[in-house]
Design a protein around this nucleic acid. Structure first.
Lengths: 190, 190
DNA sequence: CCACGACGCAACGGTTGCGTTTCGACGTTA
DNA sequence: TAACGTCGAAACGCAACCGTTGCGTCGTGG
């Protein structure tokens, strides 16, 4: 039986190596070195760098994806943006995500995995928020869910992952308010 | 005197290698191979992979940065978004930009260069557009230029560089309209 | 209590890239 | 035509990493 503590050490090492040197430069030797294990232990679990990274990354991404459903679009929106901003400001995640995104443009398997890990658990989720809001009458009937999601997540990603500017609650509120306005949302009943 | 045609061949090879394998995996040997020149020719011009890439990339980025100043915010906005969307849909640029962005998170020199090449020639430029619009009374006085830029470029970058979804004129208009609305812009005088 | 399996370590041959050096061919300039 | 500098090609020693193998140790399950 493979030892769980060693598997965990390797997973941890992979995430940190990914953050430090990126997928392109990631080497299994360095992973084993960092995890304090032999290369053998790594190859006993995965046969490839690609397979290893995909399994580990999707494993991390899949768990703990909260599901905002607060009953109103305004709070759903704010909560989602808050969660995403926290995730994109996480030291390691903020390095790994743009790196894998760039790599996905070259490697279809990475693209597919990221698709599953991020788009399914985030964009599709956001589209559900929009759908609910339309049903509740908080958003106009013709609202394009895709466009709405782009307006929500685009500025956040741009700010955090591209410009790497820290984001405070005040900024989040401004963006949220802008999204509400531009979508023609009915203000919360408060 | 260094031969210009060979320098050009190397520059071209670097851009294509960057697009295909990314900065992390880019090797000078491969560049020379692709350019059909000897490694000697490369090392005679630059001493590093880093130095070479920075010089070439900033050279490409610096030239031909048009300056939208059409006289109205609405058209400035549309023109800017059109130009940016064209740039981000360029086969090679759309691979290189996210890759270097991710690399910039690790390498301060790359970050600085990208800063100069993109932020100065694009964000600051966009901020000028917003400033002019405020002077003309097309935007409210308190408008935050940074926020405005984020709302303009964020969704575009998200769409094109992250999701890699093609963008048509219809989508561009929708985003532009959303930005106008959320900023409380005065509609064009037409 | 014993065998099995996972462990680390070290070494294997092979590949790739580094940055440098040497060589002969070529073309320009003087 | 003679000197100079760039050119491609090839090889240099060095380092890193690949994926595999053999070894001796240690812990656990049967």
């Amino acid at each position: 039986m493979l030892r769980g503590d060693i598997t965990a050490a390797i997973r941890n090492a992979v995430m940190h190596e990914l953050a430090e040197v990126g997928y392109g430069r990631l080497s299994i030797e360095a992973v084993a070195r960092r995890a304090g294990v032999g290369k053998t232990a790594v190859y006993r679990r995965w046969s490839n760098k690609l397979e290893m990274v995909l399994e580990i990354v999707s494993g991390v991404a899949e768990r703990s994806v909260p599901m905002p459903d607060t009953g109103s679009f305004a709070t759903d929106l704010q909560l989602t943006m808050f969660i995403v901003s926290k995730a994109l400001q996480h030291r390691i995640a903020s390095q790994i995500i743009p790196d894998l995104m760039a790599e996905a443009a070259r490697n279809p398997k990475i693209a597919e995995t990221l698709n599953k890990a991020l788009r399914t658990h985030q964009t599709a989720l956001s589209e559900k928020i929009v759908g609910q809001a339309i049903e509740r009458g908080e958003l106009p009937k013709g609202t394009d869910p895709e466009l709405a999601v782009d307006l929500m997540l685009g500025p956040l990603y741009w700010r955090l992952a591209v410009l790497r500017t820290p984001v405070d609650d005040d900024y989040l509120e401004k963006v949220a308010a802008s999204v509400m306005t531009s979508l023609g949302a009915t203000p919360p009943a408060s």
